[in-house]
């Protein structure tokens, strides 16, 4: 936490190796998450419908859906907090940083909540492609944020005064 609130060059130098190692693991987590969904067939609309669409009479949707959102929100929450907080002390323009985080958060929420559309409105069309697209966007934004933090963490801000 100290290097986040008091980012002096000496502190940042010491923090860089463990931060970069953490970010490398974050990339592995994101790649693993994509692979896991692909292995479960959750990256095709048909596969997703088979796993998460409510059966007739299942008023609140399958338990598997609630479990997936429970775990997914935990992962997204920690990734957004850690990567977002690291970007705060990186020499990255606030617009780029906030844009990446906002896109990742919005896409993550759509990814997590889209499967509830057919629970609330049975037969809701297009929820599966929406979820797959949102997951892709969330992963792309998070990967971009992680790579940006990896490249820029601990660097001196670029001078703009000539």
């Amino acid at each position: 936490m100290r290097f986040l609130v008091q980012p002096s060059p000496a502190v940042l130098d010491r923090a860089r190796p463990p931060v970069r190692a953490f970010l490398a693991f974050a990339v592995l987590l994101l790649v693993g998450w994509i692979a896991s969904r692909a292995a479960h067939g959750a990256l095709t609309p048909e596969g997703l419908s088979r796993i998460l669409e409510p059966l007739p009479g299942e008023r609140f949707g399958p338990v598997a859906l609630w479990e997936e959102v429970h775990q997914g929100a935990f992962l997204y929450g920690f990734l957004l907090l850690t990567v977002g907080s690291l970007l705060v002390v990186c020499p990255v323009s606030p617009g780029v940083r906030n844009g990446l985080l906002a896109v990742a958060t919005a896409a993550a929420l759509v990814d997590l909540l889209a499967p509830f559309l057919p629970v609330a409105w049975p037969g809701f069309p297009g929820w599966a492609p929406l979820r797959i697209g949102a997951f892709g966007l969330a992963m792309a934004a998070l990967l971009a944020a992680v790579v940006l933090a990896w490249v820029t963490f601990g660097r001196e801000p670029r001078r703009t005064d000539g």
Binding site: V63, Y76, G77, G84, V88, A104
Partner: peptide, 30 residues
Amino acid sequence: RMARFSLPVAAFATMVALVMATGAVLFARK
């Protein structure tokens, strides 16, 4: 100094709220 971290902390709080809400539903159902 919290102001600089408002966006990642807001995202974290939103996701934790989802974790707690889904945890409550899972507890009730299971």
